[in-house]
Write a protein that binds this DNA or RNA. Structure first.
Lengths: 260, 260
DNA sequence: CAAAACTGCGATCAATGTTCGCTGTATGGA
DNA sequence: TCCATACAGCGAACATTGATCGCAGTTTTG
C-alpha cells in the first residue's frame, strides 16, 4: 500500500504536510536546512545552479535523500522562497495611514527582491503561500484597517499590490543586471531599438529615443515611491495621498523635488 | 573555422541575426513555421510540452534540425511569444485620450494572455523585444502623444503598464485555471488560509475571510477597467480620467457604479 | 568547375529530475 | 517483551531533455 500521508483529505502542498511523523529514526536534516542551502546557492550563482545534486552535496548527502524532505524540486524552491520571506521585518510602529504603511511594506519587498534576484524566477502563484507569505498578507491587511473594501476585495488588492512590487523590482533589476555589463546592455538595447525605429516605420519610437539619453543611475528611489504611491492611491477608495517624506526616512534616500 | 554569423559586432539575439544567408540550399522550414508549431503545442498542452523533440516531430524532422533555425530552446520560445504578439490589432481609430487608448491596448494584451496562458511563463524581459513587441510599444507611445514625459520616461511607463496588464491577466488566470477544478481550488485555498489564520495568530486574515465569500464569477471586467484606469491615471501626469463607458463598449461590459 | 558555405540529420553526450529497492532504526500495540 | 509497521539514508539506475559532432548532399560564388 501507499503511505498514508493524505490523512484529512489533501496533502498536496508541502505546507499541508507534516515535516515528519513520529515513527522512524530522527532525520539528519530538515526542511529549513535544505532551504537555506538552496537559497545560499541561488544567491551565489542563480536559481539555475540549484539542482537536487548541488543542494544535496551542499548538505553532504546524495540526491535521493532530499526526497525524504521534499516531494519535488518545485517544492524545494517553494521552501527557499518562503524562507527568504522570513527576512521581512514588521517592527516599525505603523502610521495608521494605509498608503504610508503599504509603501513601507513595498520597500521591504523591494529590498528582498534586490537581495535575492532569483525570487523573480519563482512563480508567485500556482501553489499555496507559505507561512511567511501569509504573514506578509496579514501585515498588509493590518495596514488596510479602515479601508472601505470587503475582505476578498482587500485580498485581491494585496495580490495586485504585491505584483506591483515585484514588477518594479523586476524592472530595476533587469535594467542593471541582465547580461553582465550594465552600460553595454543599455547601449545594445538602445541601438537595437534605434535600428527598429528607422527600419520599421516607428515614428513615435524614433521620437522617444531622440530625446535626452537614459535615466540617471540609482535615481529609482523617488520613482519607486512616486509611482507606488500613485498606484496605491488609485487602488484604495477614498484615501488621500500621505504627506511626502514620511516613509522614506528609513533607508536614507534623499527625496528631492522632481525636476522638470 | 567557426561560422561567421557575428558580422557587424553582435549576433546575440535572434532578432539581430539574419534568418538565412544567401549560400547553401534553401531551408525546408522557417522560423515562422517552427514558432507556429511551438505555439500550437503550447496552446494545446502547455509550455512544458514544447520540447525540441516535440516541435521537431510536429514539423516532421529531427531535433538536431531545429538548431539550423534557432540557437537554443529559449530562442524558440522567444519566437513563439513574438509570433502571438502579432495577433494584436490596432485598427480602431484612437480617441486621443491617453488613458482611453492605453486601456484599449490593455484589453488587447489581456485577451492575448487569456488566449495563450503560457505567455505568462515566458520571461518578459532579459532579451531583446521582437518586432511585434516593438510594434506594441510604438502604439503605446502613439497613445501617449501629448503626455508631458520625456522619451525614456514614457518607455519606462510603458514597461510598468505592460507589467500591470500581465499582472492582472496572471491574477485572473491563476484564479480560475490552476489545478483543474476551479471551485475546488478556491475552497482549498480558503480552507488553508482559514487554518493559517487561527493557528498562526492572524486576526486581520481571519476577519477578511469572515466576510461574504469569494468574488462573483466573470465580474473581472469592471474590476480590470477600474483598477487599470486608476493606475494609468496615476502614472500619467496631469491627465484627467476619461468619461466612463467609452472603451468597454467593444466587449459588452456593463460598468456599473461601485457598490458600497 | 572547384572552393566555400550552408542544410538535413543520425548518433550521441551530459545533465537533471525522479524512482527502486535495500539496509538500518525507531515507534506503537499485543 | 517482541514484532509488525513505518520511516530515514542512499547507491544505483532510468527517462527525458537540451545540445553537439560529424558526415553527406546542395547551392552559390568567383
Amino acid at each position: 500500500m501507499m503511505t498514508e500521508q493524505e490523512t484529512g483529505g489533501h496533502g498536496r502542498s508541502i505546507w499541508t504536510r507534516p515535516e515528519r511523523s513520529a515513527r522512524g529514526p530522527s532525520p539528519e536534516h530538515s526542511r529549513a536546512e535544505i532551504a537555506s542551502a538552496g537559497a545560499t546557492l541561488a544567491d551565489a550563482s542563480g536559481l539555475g545552479t540549484v539542482t537536487m545534486r548541488s543542494v544535496a552535496a551542499a548538505i553532504g548527502t546524495g540526491p535521493a535523500s532530499l526526497y525524504r524532505y521534499v516531494a519535488t524540486r518545485d517544492e524545494l524552491v517553494e521552501l527557499m522562497a518562503d524562507q527568504v520571506f522570513g527576512e521581512l521585518s514588521y517592527h516599525e510602529p505603523g502610521s495608521g495611514h494605509p498608503v504610508t504603511d503599504l509603501l513601507r511594506l513595498a520597500h521591504q519587498g523591494r529590498g528582498l527582491y534586490h537581495r535575492h534576484p532569483w525570487l523573480l524566477e519563482v512563480p508567485a502563484t500556482g501553489s499555496l503561500p507559505g507561512p511567511n507569505a501569509v504573514a506578509f498578507v496579514e501585515h498588509a491587511l493590518a495596514a488596510m484597517t479602515g479601508v472601505d473594501l470587503t475582505g476578498p476585495a482587500k485580498l485581491e488588492t494585496i495580490a495586485i499590490f504585491s505584483g506591483a512590487v515585484r514588477l518594479f523590482a523586476q524592472t530595476e533589476i533587469d535594467q542593471r543586471q541582465t547580461g553582465r555589463d550594465p552600460a553595454q546592455w543599455q547601449d545594445s538595447l538602445a541601438g537595437y531599438l534605434q535600428q527598429m525605429a528607422v527600419a520599421g516605420r516607428h515614428p513615435h519610437l524614433a521620437a522617444a529615443l531622440a530625446g535626452q539619453p537614459g535615466g540617471d543611475p540609482a535615481q529609482h528611489e523617488p520613482l519607486f515611491d512616486r509611482a507606488m504611491t500613485r498606484i496605491l492611491t488609485g487602488l484604495l477608495p477614498s484615501v488621500q495621498p500621505p504627506a511626502p517624506g514620511g516613509s522614506t526616512a528609513a533607508h536614507g534616500g534623499a527625496a528631492g523635488p522632481p525636476r522638470a
